[in-house]
Design a protein around this nucleic acid. Structure first.
Length: 543
RNA sequence: GCGGGUGUAGCUCAAUGGCAGAGCUCCAGCCUUCCAAGCUGGUGGUGAGGGUUCGAUUCCCUUCACCCGCUCCA
């Protein structure tokens, strides 16, 4: 979002443009839509493909694996995989998603709030002949909040605090069978909490036509696990050495409780993920490298630096096994001023993933990490039992690699690029009056249409020459031909689509084989031989 | 999942318990030698389901979607 002439673009205008020009449509729209699902239209699919392609080219294909790049401890390799959406159900048990994504929630009928069942703590209390299980949300202030709740509920003043009797210790709500005597964290009466209800954040499906519950499988909530599963395959089938990054793009699925904000929180979405495997001693340095590299990638593709920020997670926000996580965040127009939405997370994951898939799911709360045990004392979720360590054939050192994970949302990036490109400015019409112009100032590399070719008027042989140029460019780029109506109107239409260049064949073209190329942002035109158009545009869009 | 708001043409918006309108867009044609508003004609709509009624886009119920606020966000 940019402001020009003091007018701020708002999300409604952007959504409207997306639909009007064919960037994004609601999924199943003719049936009334489906919450949390979005389709890309003719312009949107080109934009998103270009963004994914830029990512793949920049991260994998064009990566210089021979040089030591600034900020890195050594040269490194990059490669890719494309793994399945459905994998062995055990994968999600060892990855931690199964436990984490099967939250039980309780709602409070009184306060209209919702809580995670396992994040409510409480303690039995009595006063004035009444008894209640007084609760609060787990956290540092839980004890104070419980006391406040109890004083309020029992109608006690501070001076009568000794009338309040606590029994036993603070325990989790999960230990309480019936909620009849439970006082919700913000409730005024007892028994207002609903029974715990399961929220399946992973999409469940069935493998096999007759499958029962034992054949249940899940659509992946992230592409990353497919990379871990193939870590050994990649090393065994190639001559790559560590450090090595393995990239993958693909669809993931999460049953978000509240899809919101256009495509920002969708239930079906596409990720662009890298799992970067390295020696534990160098992992901190690699983490910093990837964090900075990924931030600069957005800058290179033209995102406004002032709307983008890198946010390091606080220590208490980190996963227990992570020694560092940073989010790349964008100031989306649908957020309040000063708020940012996550585009990408760069996480130092240590050896959690490879060890979990080898030994069994690790207990994130234990230091050092150990396999999480079930009630029977055996591993809660068994791993594959396969050795996923790496032997360095130069030093003969054997170790379990540490992992840096730059995980980006392709749809979120696409949305950010659209929002960031949206401008309304003023340009003069043919009578010199200033008219509002809506323009998407995409970086030429990601623009859906690279160039439009127009005959200035539809006669005198101009269309013929323009079509020739169009067909020649079309062999290399997505280009657009238009001969209808006033040329100014055609320029404006391309501005809305974000087309960076418009090539116009005019009277002079017929005499000397030159054309004009009009720049979307500056509105300036240059004249050059028609035969040089391809080279001129190539130079500007290859990035 | 809760509360509030909104659903009328591709877009922006009118109107009404009794034939649903405008502007822009779009399409066809005319005119046009560089930045959307010239001329002629044309396509096209009440989110879905049910109820009340002689008749519902309008009133009622249900549902779906979108927006705002909670909640959630590994």
């Amino acid at each position: 979002m940019k402001s020009i002439g003091g007018k701020m673009a708002n999300m409604e205008q952007i959504v409207s443009l997306c639909k009007r020009r064919g960037f994004l449509f609601q999924s199943s729209e003719i049936y009334g839509g489906l919450n949390g699902f979005w389709d890309y239209g003719p312009l949107g699919v080109e934009l998103k493909r270009n963004i994914k392609e830029a990512w793949w080219q920049d991260m994998v294909v064009r990566h210089d694996d021979l040089s030591q790049l600034p900020g890195t401890p050594s040269p490194y390799s990059m490669t890719g995989v494309d793994t399945t959406i459905i994998v062995h159900p055990q994968v999600w048990k060892c990855s931690g998603h199964y436990d984490l994504f099967h939250d039980f929630m309780v709602d409070c009928r009184d306060s209209k709030r919702r809580y995670r069942h396992d994040q409510i703590v409480g303690r039995w209390a009595d006063a004035k002949g009444k008894r209640a299980f007084v609760t609060a949300q787990a956290g540092d202030e839980a004890e104070q909040q419980m006391e406040r709740q109890a004083m309020k509920f029992f109608n006690l003043r501070a001076k009568n605090i000794e009338e309040l009797n606590w029994e036993g210790t603070t325990i989790c709500l999960t230990e309480i069978a019936s909620f009849e005597e439970v006082l919700g964290p913000e409730a005024k009466a007892l028994g207002t909490l609903t029974p715990p209800r399961e929220f399946n954040l992973m999409f469940k499906t069935t493998v096999g036509a007759l499958g029962g519950e034992e054949d249940a499988a899940f659509l992946r909530p992230e592409t990353a696990q497919g990379i871990f599963l193939n870590f050994k395959n990649v090393l065994d089938s190639t001559r790559f050495r560590l450090p090595l990054g393995i990239a993958q793009t693909g669809k993931s699925f999460r049953n978000e409780i509240t899809p919101r904000n256009f495509t920002f929180r969708s239930r079906e979405f596409e990720q662009m993920e890298i799992e970067f495997f390295c020696h534990p001693n160098e992992s901190a340095e690699w983490y910093r490298y990837w964090r900075d590299r990924r931030l600069s990638w957005y800058h290179e593709l033209g995102i406004s630096p002032e709307r983008l920020r890198l946010r390091e997670h606080h220590e208490d926000e980190l996963s227990h096994y992570s020694t560092g996580t940073a989010d790349i965040e964008y100031a989306f127009p649908f957020l309040a001023a000063g708020e940012y939405g996550e585009l990408e997370g760069i996480a130092h994951r240590g050896d959690f993933d490879l060890r979990s898939h080898s030994e069994g799911k690790l207990d994130e709360k234990r230091r050092p990490l150990e396999v999480e045990l079930g009630p029977d004392g055996k591993p809660k979720w068994r791993g594959s039992g396969k050795d996923l360590s790496y032997r360095d054939d130069l030093t003969n050192e054997k170790y379990i690699p540490h992992v840096i994970e730059p995980s980006a949302g392709a749809d979120r990036a696409t949305l950010a690029f659209i929002c960031d490109a949206y401008y309304e400015d003023e340009a003069p019409d043919d009578e010199g009056k200033m008219q509002t112009r809506t323009v998407l100032k995409f970086h030429p590399r990601i623009a859906p249409i690279k160039a439009a070719v127009f005959p200035l008027v539809k006669k005198d042989g101009m269309p013929e020459m323009a079509k020739e140029i169009y067909l020649e460019l079309k062999k290399r780029f997505n280009v657009f031909y238009d001969e209808k109506g006033a040329v100014g109107r055609r320029y404006r239409r391309q501005d809305e689509a974000g087309t960076p260049y418009c090539i116009t064949v005019d009277g002079q073209s017929l005499l000397d084989k030159t054309v004009t190329i009009r720049d979307r942002d500056s509105l300036e035109q240059v004249r050059l031989p028609a035969s040089e158009c391809l080279a001129w545009i190539s130079e500007r869009i290859l990035g």
